[in-house]
Design a protein around this nucleic acid. Structure first.
Length: 261
DNA sequence: CACTTCCCCTGCAAGC
DNA sequence: TGCTTGCAGGGGAAGT
């Protein structure tokens, strides 16, 4: 995997750099590096793991697993940080603080930290499907497809609902559901994905009990209705038509009601 | 500007 | 059994 650079350097230039901080916003990892030389500005590694990316701290004499694209030797060389990414959707950008700030500023508020008031405002005036909005990292950073579906189920919102049409009470429920889903996932080991491992190489629990994601054709755990799957914004979207009534159904129900009068 | 669609890549599962 | 085909997802570019 090539490291994208905006400072004209090559990988050798990382030698001797010190890691000053490691931060995260949404799905982007910001690793701040500083040279020994005084007066030098910080450089950054902006790291996106994509779907299958794994950053694992490993003893240097461990055999290198297939699909390992980057190895960063640390300190005395007995350990290294290895980046493995089977599907190669991950991206590393090596840049200066200016560029780092630009990338940071283009991300929406972090899904796990955003306050309810801010979140409700994000939805206002948006005409697109709420599912697409939840996945748009420039609006809200950190949610992927699985947790977007799970959050919408928790709040009882259909994925195609225009975001701006969601009443504040429902928006608050979505905010609550999103935090619940994220907390639950993190607590149970990070993910529901099959080959996930954390930085120490421990496998993810895979025990997150998904309510709708990947359960098309199976019974809703809440009401027994069969879970449906549609495509929204190019992403598979799973929902329970009864627990998450479609805005279109609401309209037709109203029409039916009128017809009956 | 807001929003959607396409594409990258590989492993897995379903279908013939 | 073995091959082919389709699908999945994050995010950036390109399109509407």
């Amino acid at each position: 995997m090539a490291i994208e650079t905006t400072n004209g350097g090559d990988a050798q230039d990382l030698r001797g750099a010190t890691v000053r901080s490691v931060r995260r916003k949404g799905k982007t990892l910001f690793i701040e590096l500083r040279r020994d030389r005084t007066g030098q500005e910080s450089e950054f590694l902006l790291w996106n793991l994509g779907m299958t990316g794994q950053l694992v701290l490993t003893a240097s004499d461990e055999p290198v697993a297939a699909h390992t694209h980057v190895r960063l030797r640390l300190d005395d060389g007995r350990e290294e940080l290895r980046y493995r990414d089977v599907r190669r959707f991950g991206r590393i950008r090596w840049c200066g603080s200016q560029e780092s700030k630009r990338v940071l500023s283009r991300l929406g508020p972090d899904a796990a930290r955003v306050k309810s008031k801010t979140f409700v405002k994000l939805l206002e005036g948006r005409r697109g499907a709420v599912k697409s909005l939840l996945l748009n990292q420039q609006i809200l950073a950190g949610l992927g497809n699985i947790y977007a579906d799970e959050s919408l189920f928790d709040a009882g919102i259909h994925p195609l609902t225009p975001a701006g049409r969601i009443p504040p009470s429902k928006a608050l429920a979505l905010h609550r559901g999103m935090h619940l889903v994220l907390r639950r996932a993190i607590r149970s080991g990070g993910t529901s994905f099959r080959d996930f491992v954390d930085a120490e190489g421990n496998p993810g629990w895979f025990q997150v009990r998904l309510r709708v994601y990947g359960r098309a054709g199976q019974e809703c755990r809440r009401c027994g209705t069969l879970i449906e799957k549609i495509i929204v914004g190019g992403r598979g979207s799973h929902f329970c038509a009864r627990c998450q009534p479609s805005p279109l159904n609401l309209d037709s129900r109203r029409t039916v009601g009128r017809t009956h009068e």
